[in-house]
Amino acid sequence: MNNTSQNDNVLEIKDLSIAYEPGKYAVNGVTASVKRNSITAIMGPSGCGKSTLLRAINRMHELYPDIQTKGDILLDGQSIFSMSVIELRRKVGMVFQRPNPFPNMTIYENVVAGFSLNDIRMKKSRRDEIVENALRNVTLWDEVKESLYRKGTFLSGGQQQRLCVARAIAFNPEVLLLDEPTSALDPIATLKIEDLLGELKKKYTMVLVTHNMSQAARISDDSMFMYLGELVESGRTGTLFTTPKDPRTEAYLTGKFG
């Protein structure tokens, strides 16, 4: 660990631009930072580049060769592009828009998927412990402890999404990326996930993409507002919501677009 680990900022995004086609920027010159053990919400109307920005943090764009990325992102002071992508994704977990447990794996196997996928072998007792801990952390343990060896597909959408959170945190990442994690869920399941994120904040730093303003207001510490690929405004969530500096932010918050 170098001295920057003392820094409050886990992530530093520096002049990041991402283009799906040459010249067409989905994210344009974004500079921002994310504080340790906090929830940072990225908001904006659909197509503003918020998911694109999020997916740059664990280098997901490298799966699609046409996407071009410029600029830099520092994780604990180190450029993510200088790390091995395996190491990076071990430190940065991700939860997706729609619950996506692996349909070919049991609940148990899903939780330890990070270990099996990365070919990390360990004793059964240690694995059991990890599974129980992760499932307790997402408050799913009591609901599924009797059916650990069944496929995860019979669970409800909300349970599946909590299973996916468990899968991500079982690997003990530093940062958890959440890409509209509740957009496919009903209000009650959404509330459970939101409560859960509030709990998880003690251990993990979270970046949350949402198009739901009230969700951002309810659970985030810091907020960013993006529009047409640009970061329009960022700051403490309370400040941003009550006294937005940019007229576009104000228009969005008052429901003028999006």
């Binding site: 664990n58 349909p103 998927a113 990070g114």
Partner: peptide
């Protein structure tokens, strides 16, 4: 589905492993 493959990639799996 791309989302399944992405889930595995996000956990650090290599392409062959995915």
């Amino acid at each position: 589905p791309a989302e399944l493959k992405e889930a595995a990639y996000s956990l650090g799996a290599t392409r062959r492993e995915v």
